[in-house]
Design a protein around this nucleic acid. Structure first.
Lengths: 214, 214
DNA sequence: GTCTATAAAGAGATAGAC
DNA sequence: GTCTATCTCTTTATAGAC
């Protein structure tokens, strides 16, 4: 369990003046950013959803962009942390790839709104460019892990490591487009299905039972 | 070869007053939309890139949103067309899945900027919601194709068809994030690599030679 | 087909009271 | 910690001349 993951209360603004803290406002703002896009979301819209005046938000944040910066940091810290753990593990290259796949899916689901936002950043400001730079460094490390698994012979080596890595983690990242949280069991099922499709493909496994009808 | 695919001239505004047509303006606008996001791109920025006055754009389009509508249509027509062809083909379920994978990658690359834009639409206006609705219908058909291949036994059936389809085409769609056109050979290579990773996975193929070092 | 000028609305952000 | 009121800038879009 990670204490830094936000749990947004189902009803956040029940009473007249809830007195929000920064994390609650952040969670509401990020939800709006993900629904409409960062640029299409006005500070007025965030305030309205919170039932606050616009100016009240500027008590918690210096600017709209600072909200974005904190949100992106939430995603990047999670991803960088799971990458560090995977690199530190004393395992084979193939096992390290599985570790980092598992870790990426887990962080993505546990910090879904923040990672969703990160994956949509385009580089329109210093804040966005800084986040993109950290993401590029992360993606670069992933390619190294894929290449090591290839050299070791754990995964096929006839596909360029950069292409393989981008396809694999493109698949992983696409999860933000459709996955909605269900609980711990749902997360575990998802992780296993992603690993299966990513590393074994959809081809019928040799010696596996025939496809079951639904 | 598809005559409806835009070929943007490398230098589009060399002379003082080029006298643009709608397609040239569309191509430039879509490039900006993809660089910065639709909402973050002002009509003034499009005009500036074209070295035109803002008002000149309104001679070609009734509104900024109409530019978006035409661009999204370009992507959707291509995708819907390849889907129709795949459904009409007299082949097995497994072959149909390969066909539609190939077709989707091809359209995605041939109409890269338009499909890129489509994949980023959030539903902020009637135009965006209409495009999302067509995309949902397309995605729904894909799930049917995946399920048919499962029932037939061509691909593994122990993974939910919806999840499998979303992961597969999430991988395909992620290509817009990194692929840059190289030529016909590059396109063919990409298609084959995607099919390989998508349907066979990265596991070392049984009986395949060991990974080659680079 | 393009221009200059401008209208009307909405954006992010601040001042100062409570 | 929140409010009302306001500033300044930018936005989409239009009017009308060339």
């Amino acid at each position: 369990m990670d204490a830094s993951v936000v749990e947004v209360p189902a009803v956040v603004a029940r009473r007249g003046r809830p007195g929000y803290d920064q994390r609650q406002i952040l969670a509401v703002a990020v939800d709006l950013f993900n629904e409409q896009g960062y640029d299409a979301t006005s500070v007025a819209a965030i305030a309205e959803k919170l039932r606050l005046a616009k100016s009240a938000l500027y008590h918690h944040f210096n600017s709209k962009e600072e909200i974005l910066r904190l949100a992106l940091d939430e995603a990047l810290i999670g991803l960088e942390s799971t990458l560090r753990d995977s690199l530190a593990a004393d395992v084979s290259g193939g096992e390290r790839l599985t570790l980092v796949l598992r870790g990426a899916v887990t962080v993505l689901v546990e910090r879904l709104p923040y990672v969703t936002l990160l994956l949509r950043v385009r580089g329109n400001s210093d804040v966005e460019r800084a986040a993109l730079e950290r993401r590029r460094a992360f993606d670069h490390e992933l390619i190294g892990i894929v290449r090591a698994a290839q050299v070791e012979g754990s995964i096929r080596g006839d596909i360029d490591a950069g292409v393989a890595s981008r396809l694999l983690f493109g698949m992983v990242n696409s999860i933000v487009e459709w996955y909605r949280p269900t609980g711990k069991q749902g997360l575990n099922d998802l992780v296993e299905q992603v690993i299966t499709v990513a590393l074994q493909g959809l081809r019928v496994a040799p010696g596996s039972p025939p496809a079951s009808r639904e």
